[in-house]
Nucleic acid binder design. Structure first.
Lengths: 211, 211
DNA sequence: GTATGTATTAAACGAACGTTTGAATAACTG
DNA sequence: CAGTTATTCAAACGTTCGTTTAATACATAC
């Protein structure tokens, strides 16, 4: 039997991913986790404290991976006295996400959750999420400016914005995509390699489009 | 003094766009509209009936515009005995949205709302929204297959998916973008023409990327 | 064993929610 | 004008929510 705290985190991750932060009640979370209702406030202080730790538990290590991969791109470029590549910058963001996604069922839930976090109406979730993402975005912008010096910073900013939109939308829809039901009969592949192979060329081409 | 029904629809559109469907209470809506709480259930039956009409009131005419513009693209192509253009297909979707957005402050709220609808956790909103969008998506797929015959249908499907993700993300973030606060000092343009000029080249390049 | 701090539990709290009710008022019809 | 329908209103309904409380169980240390 897992520890209570961990059981709550797993259950909350699962349900937040499925229905969002606001619509998921602590009663549903504790019932699924088979723990007492009051244990959430005992261990996490509040619902807000819970979602904070749900996000942090996965996003901190994931962002460490992304930052390392970004640093690798910078190092490799400077070792060759050249500029980084836009595709490599974007891959450093997307690849860890998608491999994270496919590494276990539990992380699959979290991937859904961070897809949601981009669009979460609630300030609580958005603030936690973006405070953790800010260093990544800034580093990506730094790399993109080097990779595409002919494109103004403002345009690069928007294209990064579009890329994040496409990525988060994809993550959010992985398990329950209203789109896929439209093209009936078709069941597009959603495994990790396929997704990278589809998404990365798309955002790279968009990023590198002539201005 | 506007009619009660219209006052409720405007207020609901405004608040749903701001905080999402679930987090917005009927009490907040009726208070802002300066009408009695019970009038929502009287005029719309339920909260679900209200959001249904909020979405329909704007999305039906907007989708009529989009469908007309798509039809123009098809007609113009067949009159020249050629295939439609990927950029024109995408523009037929994005352009009416953005001009809708900038035509009035009230429609600006709705644009935020449809940006939200793509990612709404609640089934109610998603079902209403996607049932109205389905014909548009199908027609776009038809056009994209003609425009880019060398790209498989599955890849086109995903690229359209990515494009919708980028577009909805952009709409959702127009007024309250956590990203723009990251790049401090910078205040990227958000007027209609600029947005089309930025978004359309991005998704077109992504759509046309070699497979 | 007793004491001490940690963890769990059932029960209740006040607040907010969507909805319903029944009477009062307004608007329209013959 | 009276008669009828449509609309508004204050109040209350039953539920669910996040949180708190106070009692209990359990561990470890002296």
């Amino acid at each position: 039997m897992k520890e209570t705290k961990e059981r709550i985190l797993d259950s909350a991750e699962n349900l937040f991913a499925e229905s969002g932060y606001q619509a998921t009640s602590l009663r549903a979370i504790t019932q699924k986790a088979e723990v007492n209702l009051a244990s959430v406030n005992y261990h996490f202080g509040s619902k807000e404290g819970l979602v904070d730790e749900v996000i942090r538990r996965r996003l901190v290590p994931l962002n460490k991976l992304r930052m390392q991969q970004l640093q690798n791109v910078f190092d490799h470029a400077s070792s060759q006295k050249s500029n980084p590549n836009a595709e490599d910058i974007l891959r450093a963001f997307i690849e860890p996400t998608i491999t994270f996604l496919s590494s276990s069922n539990s992380l699959r839930h979290f991937t859904l959750l961070i897809g949601r976090s981009f669009a979460e109406p609630d300030d609580t979730v958005r603030k936690i999420f973006f405070s953790l993402m800010e260093p990544i975005f800034n580093t990506m912008m730094k790399g993109l400016k080097l990779a595409l010096p002919n494109i103004t910073e403002e345009v690069l900013f928007w294209r990064l914005h579009f890329s994040l939109g496409a990525t988060s939308h994809t993550l959010r829809c992985i398990d329950n995509c209203p789109m896929t039901q439209l093209f009936n009969g078709k069941d597009p592949a959603t495994d990790a390699e396929s997704l990278i192979g589809l998404l990365l060329p798309f955002v790279t081409a968009g990023m590198e489009a002539p201005q």
